[in-house]
Computed example of a mutant assay.
Amino acid sequence: MSCWTFLVAFSLLVPWCHAGCAEVDSMTEAVAGEGFLLGCISCKKREEVSARATVDWHFKRPEDHEFTHIFHYEHPNANVLHEDFSDRLQWQGTLNDDVQIGAVYVQNVTFNDSGTYRCTFRRTLFLPLQPENVVVEKEVELTVVAAANRELTAVISEIVMYVLIVVLQLWLILVMVYCYKKIWDEHEAREAKKALEAEGSLLESKDPCDGVQAE
């Protein structure tokens, strides 16, 4: 599971506690034939203020000059607005009026899905004096590839993991050799001590007057 997906999942688990909101950039590389989560988060600056928001997604291919409206969410309704994305877009954002996560999941990604996606929040803040309208826009440059590219950090992490495994194994071998040598030295010392004690006992038990004849 990617970092972005984890944070979205965590935020969805705590939609009523806005302190869990964190603005994280979306991933930008999708694999053809697989699903992809288009991320878009807009956190409120004042958590104590109630609000209502809608989310719109627009899409523009590299050869296009204008964006096309493809998705609209206004709780509880999620509407796919373009036939190219029919039955392929699924809402993965906040499930109440106060939307802060505007993520959508794209099923069965194709190479034609490469391009620029624009996420637009239209939020109404219900302030004490009068409501305030705020518009937030974010863009995601999506590239669709045939196979997933391994990130450099992942490769480095894997190399470090293997190095640590080898180092730990060598350290374990050295510890075993050291312990074995220590046990053997202690065994040799005990045997030598026993031999000295046995020799001493033999000398003490021998009568010094043996062999001396009385006159």
Rank of each mutant, 00 (worst) to 15 (best):
M1G: 09
S2M: 05
C3F: 11
C3E: 14
T5M: 06
F6S: 12
F6K: 14
L7H: 10
L7N: 09
V8I: 10
A9C: 13
F10L: 15
L12A: 02
L13R: 08
V14T: 15
P15R: 03
C17I: 13
C17Q: 12
C17N: 15
A19G: 08
C21G: 11
C21H: 06
A22V: 15
V24Q: 04
V24N: 02
D25F: 11
T28S: 14
E29P: 07
E34D: 10
F36H: 00
L38M: 14
C43E: 10
C43A: 14
K44F: 04
K44N: 11
R46F: 03
V49A: 02
S50W: 01
A51C: 12
A53H: 01
H58C: 11
H58M: 14
K60L: 10
R61N: 07
D64N: 10
E66M: 09
F67Y: 15
F67M: 13
T68K: 03
H69V: 07
I70A: 01
I70T: 00
H72W: 02
H72N: 12
Y73M: 10
E74Q: 13
P76W: 01
P76K: 04
N77D: 12
N77H: 12
A78R: 05
A78M: 08
N79S: 14
N79H: 12
L81H: 08
L81V: 11
H82E: 03
F85N: 01
R88V: 03
R88W: 03
R88T: 03
L89V: 06
Q90T: 15
Q92W: 06
G93T: 04
T94E: 00
L95N: 14
N96V: 04
N96M: 06
Q100T: 06
G102E: 01
V104I: 15
V104C: 04
V106F: 00
V109Q: 00
F111D: 11
D113F: 01
S114H: 01
S114N: 01
G115F: 05
G115V: 07
Y117A: 04
R118T: 06
C119P: 01
C119G: 06
T120R: 01
F121T: 02
R123H: 02
R123Q: 07
T124D: 00
L125V: 03
F126I: 05
L127D: 05
L127M: 14
L129Y: 05
L129W: 02
Q130R: 06
P131A: 04
P131L: 06
E132K: 07
V134K: 01
E141R: 11
V144D: 01
V145W: 03
V145C: 07
A147C: 13
A147R: 14
A148W: 02
N149E: 15
E151I: 04
E151Q: 09
A154G: 09
A154H: 10
V160E: 09
L164G: 14
L164W: 12
V166C: 10
L170T: 09
W171M: 13
I173C: 10
M176I: 13
Y178E: 12
K182R: 15
I183K: 15
I183Q: 13
A189M: 03
K194M: 05
A195G: 05
L196E: 11
L196C: 06
E197K: 12
S201T: 07
S201Y: 04
S201V: 03
L203G: 11
E204M: 10
S205A: 15
K206R: 08
P208K: 09
C209P: 00
G211N: 10
A214V: 08
E215G: 11
